[in-house]
Structure formats: C-alpha cells, structure tokens
Design a protein around this nucleic acid. Structure first.
Lengths: 353, 353
DNA sequence: CGATTCGATCGAATCGATTCGACAGTGGTT
DNA sequence: AACCACTGTCGAATCGATTCGATCGAATCG
C-alpha cells in the first residue's frame, strides 16, 4: 500500500494482477502464449496503477538497443537547416526511421555538444556533410561500435555512403554549357575546407576535406580546365551574390557560371542583375539541387535535381540494415537534369568582346 | 582470454586493472576519492581493452535519466522546418540542451511515428505548436510522467508554456495601422484548426485549436471589429499569395492587410503586385516574426520581431529546471516592432473610393 | 489407462552500470 | 597509548525490464 504512490513498474503490476513478472512482460511484448484471461488481468491492473508500458530505459539495457539513431548535421541546427537539402535529407531519414519505430536524435558537430555526442544512447548514426570533424566523429563512433552511414561524402573505413553521383551530374551540367558554346566559364563552389579565402587552385582542391564540393569542382575543371573557381563559405543566397560579384565584376566576365547549389545560383543571378548582365542572354547560370526557388527568383533555374529525401531514406534504411547485421553497399543516386531558363547559347557579342 | 573479443564493460576493465567495479566506476564518473595510481591503472586497462566510457543505456537505467529531451514538431520535419521560426526555436533549444549535456530527440506528431513517440526514452519534452493532436500527446507525456514545456500555446494541465505576448504584439501592429488612418483592414491568419476553408467568423475563432492564431486574430478584431479574416492552411509564401488574392481581388479592397507571419505577408505583397496595388501607397501590409525576408522580397516588412531562438532557449532551460524538480513559471517574451517599409498612412483616394 | 505433447505460467539469471555503507590503513591529536 | 578523522577501496544491492529453461496440469494418443 505504501507503494501506491510510487512509479508503477512491471513488478508492481504483476503483483497486483497476481502473476509473475515474466508473464506480465509477455503481455506487453505481445509475444508468447498467454491466456486471454491472464492478459486481461494484467492489462486491468496496469490501467488501475497507471502503468503505461515498460520503461524504455530498462528495455534498452536488456536488449542492447535503444531504438534511437543519431543524425549528425554540421555546425548548428539553424545553419544546417537553412539549406533545404539538409532539411529534405533529415525528413527522409525521419520518415523511414519513424516507420521502423526508431527515433531521431539530432546531433551537431559543434564542440560544445561533444559531450552529448559521446554519451548519447544511439544504436546507429547517419553522419552528414564533410566537416573537418567528420573523420574524428566517425572514429569516435567506430570505437563505440556504432554502425554509421555517411551522407554526402565518400565511403570511409568500412562505413558505406549514400550520395548522388556528383561527378556525373556536374559533368552533365558543364557539358550542357559547353555544348551551348560557352568557353569562358567560372564556378562558385561550396565550402571546400575551413579556409574562408575564396581563391581556389588545384592544390587547394587536392587538399579539400569536403568531398561533394571537390567532386563537383573536379568535374567542372574536366570540362573547363581554365575556368576560374571561387569558394563560398556557405550555401546561401548572400554568399552566392558576394562571390558572384567577384566573378562577374571584372573586365572580361565569364559567359557562364556554374554554381554548386541552387541557393548560390540565385545569389549569382542577383549579382548579375546588379551588374546589368542579362540572364540568360549575356550570362548563363546553373545551379545544383533542384530545390524550389520560385520564392527567391521568378526565373526557373537550369540545374540538376537531386533526390534529397531519397538520400535520407536510403541512409536510414542502410543504417537499419546494419543494425540487422548486414553490411549494406554504398548507394549512388542519380540526379535529373532540369532545363530551366537560366542557360542559353553563348552570346556572340560577349564571346567576341 | 575468451572474452578478449567481447564488448568490454566496466567489469572487464575493472578485472583487468585489478580493482573493484565500483572503483572503476568512480574513475569514469570523476567523482569520489581515487588515488592517482589506481586511476591510471584503470584508464590504461580501458585503453588496452578499447573501452570508451560506460554504456549510456545502463547508466540511464540506473540513474533514471537518459539525458535525452524530446522536441516535438508538427507534421513532418520537412514542413515544420520550412518555417524559419520553428528552425530558430529548435536551434535555440538544441544549444541550451547541448550545453547541459542533453540530446535532442526530434519527434513529430505524425501518426506513423506514434510508436516512437510512446516508446522513446526521454526525460522531458518540448511540445511545439498547437496541432489538434497536441492535447492527446500532452496526455500521453503526462501519463509517462515526462515533464513537458509547451511552446506556442497556452499553459495547460500544469505544463508551463513559453511564448511571445501575441495579444500585445498583434494589438500593437493593428493599432499602428489604425493610427496611420486605416479603417478598412483585413487579416490572413495562420491555421486555426484542421479545417481548410478560409472563411473565419467569431464562431470558428471560438472553436480554434491553435492558440497563437486565435490570439493574434482576437487582437486584430479588437482594433478592427469588422475586419475580414481568412485563414491560411500553412505559413508559406504561396498560401499568403493565395489568400492575399482572395482579400484584395474585390471591388473595395482593404487598405491594410495584417498577415500573421512574415512568409504570409510576403505572399500578400506578391498578390498586391499582381493586382497592381502599390505597397505601401495603396496598401499597407504587416507581417509577424521578423525573419530575414530580404531574399524573398526587397521591401523590408513592417512586422514584429519575435525572439525565436530565445523561445527555444527558454523552453529548454525550463525543461531542464523541471528535471531538477522545479516547477518553472510560464514565460511570455516580448516582441519588437520593426517599422519596415510596407506600412504607410492610409491613402485618401483609397479611403474615399 | 499410462505415456506424450502442448499451452500457460513461473523463477532466476542477466543486461552494465551507480551508489551506499562497510572496512582497512594512515596520520594527527591529546 | 587510545582515539578520531579521513582517504582509498571494495561488496552488494539496485535500477526495470527480457528471456531461457523448468514446471505443471490438461488434453491427446496409442
């Protein structure tokens, strides 16, 4: 009686129902053979005592699973989720994980959250992006024997990766411009490393820590070997405009700019507007991602649409398979070319300028 | 020796170091008095065996804390995070929780994720928004004795709430318009309930499930008792434009539109543009939130800036205090009026139209 | 009718840590 | 010399479930 005000546990309920704890457990697990009468007795006792299912903590200790998958995004939540690509990815992952009964533990690589990262109960992890910390975080996860899937980088140390085929997609965009007659092209890359300086040369590419940015730049240079490349620090419209101005506000501006993300591309469009360069007449601009930019700019972007949510879904199912002991292979998803209206044949006047 | 390939546990390490489990535990907890020599022995044994800290699952069972706080957003991640207000809130919460060593479990009120919601290990929860499910979810959390803080709704059933002072802020905006001479005003509300129909009357307001939308509408009607009100289904630019057209494409359009969010306000601006109504000369538009809309529209919005991240931070610290046994009071944050450039004195021509 | 299954239930071990009370040794106080 | 406070260490109980093997009565079979 003195325990009537305590947290009810399986033991409490079992006692009240006059059965063994193990039997009560069977009832809640829905397994084993339990007579209807006993089941009802247990359920009644549970309602009576206000017991609403077994404690997840105890359960997770016993079966070694917490039912939680960590999803690690770069830097802060706010800056990661400013980019619809990340949001789409997390959404896709949350969808699949949710259906499988697993929760999403949102983690960042921020230093002040390292304690959480190290201590958080998680059965598996999805590590997105390519921060300089990624390697370190991956190491920590491997030590803890947490199966990990990478998103947006190459497979490493036995962890499979889910990503789009960046080289193919980027080459397709560059070649599209090349076939339209463009010979003077430039590119705005995503962050390649922690360096804030925009100038990018072959050495910096070789030392880059961000696989995605590096692959896309390499593909660009495969098609335009002498194309100028400047690195943005973030995938935002503002950065796109800033770098765009640097590329376009010169005596002999390029006739085409390949931006490594749609947000950057919109920024380049703004820069072009400000400098009086008509798009696509005088300047062609391509993006990457295929997000909805209609709210940002009326001109539909020429871009590659990448399946963001699918990336999240695939990463999630890979991670779930790893929990079942499988060793899933890396996944390379295809992008889809979106013609848009920001790329056109190279303007003769501009070429002969 | 046969256990050399097993998961190392505290017990394994203790045995290898020749000390008791309890002593080894002291070492990792950094508590109790342990001699430097013993400490080193344990640490060495741990490195040797590849033991990297105690298992969070076991720890959480023992001390009844998992170090995880659930953050519940409405519907899917992708639609919740389309709104910068939610992102800012989650970011603020993640920041405070991270510093306190707690993880963020991202949950949705989606039906297919109910199992996760019920079973997830969490010590406390932050419940955002006012979906029709909120009451039910709150009930479930209370049964599980999970301390909960609400964001964006009124305090309920002993759960404190963190929110901005919607009545005051909304009244301030409406009065601003009134003082500018506007007498024919209309409003675009956020979703009031699950009904998709735009028309809103006093009865619907009385039955509304979304506190925020209801409070803002009430304040609007306090100032403009006969103002027309239409409800959006989402806080998006598209919805703003759709409802904006319904409000403005009539014989005698209002001279001012109060939108309940900045995204809706930008949509109204678009609708005004499309109908040839100059802003702010012929039409004044106000928003709410104070997000950065520069990428969406060059005209700085007249709006109320709400401290989104602060909401998240306050909710997080309230929840942490509840974990310490306190019963924190609800928090009402102030908004800041942003003059912007989309509200101007009522145009005489329009008034006399 | 005795032997065999099968279904329902129970007891006890286990998951991996935390923590409290006990205990031995050490140095200082009167 | 007897006593005390304190430090460092240990053993054992505990958190709340899951699960395996054992048990026992009843139904089935030859």
């Amino acid at each position: 009686m003195t325990e009537s005000r305590q947290h009810p546990t399986l033991a409490t309920v079992a006692r009240a129902a006059g059965v063994a704890v193990s039997t009560a457990s069977l009832v809640f697990a829905g397994k084993g053979p339990v007579s209807a009468a006993t089941k009802q007795k247990v359920l009644d006792a549970a309602t009576e005592l206000g017991f609403h299912g077994p404690d997840p903590r105890a359960r997770s200790l016993r079966n070694g699973r917490s039912g939680v998958v960590g999803v690690v995004v770069q830097t802060s939540v706010i800056s990661a989720f400013r980019d619809p690509v990340n949001v789409g990815m997390v959404d896709g992952a949350a969808e699949v994980l949710g259906e499988a009964g697993a929760g999403v533990l949102l983690l960042t690589d921020a230093p002040h959250a390292r304690r959480v990262f190290e201590d958080a109960p998680m059965d598996a992890a999805v590590l997105t992006g390519c921060s300089p910390w990624a390697t370190e975080l991956l190491g920590s996860l491997r030590r803890r024997r947490v199966p990990t899937v990478l998103v947006g980088s190459r497979p490493r140390r036995g962890s499979p990766a889910v990503d789009v085929d960046n080289p193919a997609a980027s080459r397709e965009l560059a070649q599209h411009l090349y076939r339209l007659g463009h010979r003077r092209a430039a590119t705005v890359t995503l962050a390649l490393d922690t360096d804030d300086a925009p100038a990018v040369d072959a050495d910096r590419l070789a030392a880059a820590t961000a696989d995605t940015a590096a692959e896309r730049l390499q593909a660009f240079w495969d098609v335009f070997p002498n194309g100028r490349a400047l690195a943005a620090t973030d995938s935002t419209v503002e950065e796109g405009e800033r770098i765009g101005r640097m590329l376009l506000d010169v005596p002999e501006p390029p006739t085409a700019v390949v931006a490594q993300s749609d947000l950057l591309a919109v920024g380049v469009l703004r820069a072009a507007d400000a400098l009086g360069l008509a798009v696509p007449d005088r300047l062609s601009v391509t993006g990457f991602d295929g997000i909805d930019t209609s709210a940002l700019d009326p001109r539909p972007l020429t871009t590659m649409r990448q399946p963001m949510q699918q990336k999240g879904r695939d990463a999630a199912s890979a991670v779930l398979r790893m929990l079942d002991g499988a060793r899933p292979r890396s996944v390379l998803l295809d992008c889809e070319f979106v013609p848009g209206a920001t790329a056109a044949p190279a303007d003769c006047a501009a070429q002969h300028h």
